[in-house]
Design a protein around this nucleic acid. Structure first.
Length: 317
DNA sequence: AAAATTTGCAACCGCACGCCA
DNA sequence: CTGGCGTGCGGTTGCAAATTT
């Protein structure tokens, strides 16, 4: 769905709302002041194109990133010739163009996982997205808002009607115990992954891509492998195909794989590689690493990764 | 068949955070 | 220590497609 854009997006300004106009004017003034004070505006208004991206723009962006790697988004529009704001470029890359993105058709497993994680983490989509490495936070957020929310609401309605007269607790008893337990499990899982640095990635190849994005993303095939060195100052977006679930806490591998996270550790349940680096020695000081490892392994072997999910997921549904 | 309404989702906006000079 | 800057995140918007009337 590629549409001629700029004209349409002009309409996006919410001028109808008078209160909004006041706020808008206030902000304009603020920006003006900032400009006078020396702070350059993020993007020159007017020069920046908005609205849906065209395939041409996509190709420009992809080939630029192919050459320079993601990151330093500020420089992208200037150097690539795109008339887009740096933010827009980053977003387009992160949510649509970067390789390894799986789109549409959420599986039942994914659905359950999202519901479960949303229950645990709230609307921290970036954190949730780290558990679904081939999905973007935006996608998950949209899916939640459009599908899952309704699904859950109607489910709760049915539950309430079913349990006529009895306690109408949507979430069953002992939820906090289970929640805490699951939190612990999540933390353990993250740490476990962080500790098993040498384990090969077992993220299965994704098979479904958005058709248009797929074509463009294919331009990148081979690029990642041929990248001589990890690009300096990698941003968090992108490069997921080889990325593992890394984001929930694995430290960067020392292979040629560029490590990134789709989110910047906004979750308290997860640790950034930096955090882990400082956390692990700290922990190790308190107890030997082997102990931690065996503790983790014991637990995960006993339970199995899926078990902990199933338990709570089955309860969620 | 046309109009009205709903749905899905790409993209924007503003805020917050971390890094660095 | 502080402020500027770049980046990431979550909420929200609005367009196009799909569905209903």
């Amino acid at each position: 769905m590629w549409v001629e854009t700029s004209v349409k997006t002009e309409k996006r300004t919410r001028q109808e709302d008078p209160s909004h106009c006041i706020v808008q004017r206030e902000r304009e003034r603020e920006r003006e002041r900032e400009r006078e004070m020396g702070r350059p505006p993020c993007c020159k208004k007017g020069d920046v194109k908005k609205g849906p991206w065209t395939p041409e723009e996509d190709i420009i962006l992809v080939s630029y990133i192919k050459e320079h790697g993601p990151g330093n988004w500020k420089a992208v529009p200037c150097n690539s010739g795109l008339t887009r704001c740096s933010k827009s470029c980053r977003l387009r890359w992160a949510n649509y163009l970067r390789p390894g993105i799986k789109r549409g058709n959420f599986t039942e497993q994914e659905e359950k996982l999202i519901i479960h994680l949303q229950d645990l983490l709230g609307n921290r989509w970036a954190a949730i997205a780290t558990y679904l490495p081939d999905r973007t936070d935006n996608d998950i957020k949209n899916y939640w808002n459009t599908h899952l929310k309704k699904k859950l609401i109607s489910k709760l309605d049915v539950d309430c009607k079913d349990s006529n007269g009895s306690k109408q607790q949507p979430i069953c008893k002992g939820q906090w115990e289970r929640r805490i337990q699951t939190d612990i499990n999540l933390a353990k899982q993250a740490l476990s992954q962080a500790l098993s640095l040498n384990k090969p990635n077992d993220i299965s190849e994704t098979s479904t891509y958005a058709s248009s994005a797929e074509n463009i993303a294919r331009l990148l095939q081979g690029w990642k492998k041929s990248l001589p060195t990890p690009v300096a100052s990698q941003s968090n977006s992108g490069l997921t195909e080889t990325d593992t679930v890394s984001s929930h806490g694995t430290t960067p591998t020392t292979t040629t794989t560029t490590t990134t996270t789709t989110s910047s550790s906004s979750s308290s349940y997860m640790m950034s590689p930096q955090q882990l680096e400082s956390f692990v020695p700290e922990l190790e000081a308190q107890m030997p690493l082997s102990m931690i490892e065996s503790w983790l392994l014991d637990e995960t072997v006993e339970q199995g990764q899926e078990d902990f999910l199933d338990i709570s997921l089955n309860e969620t549904f």
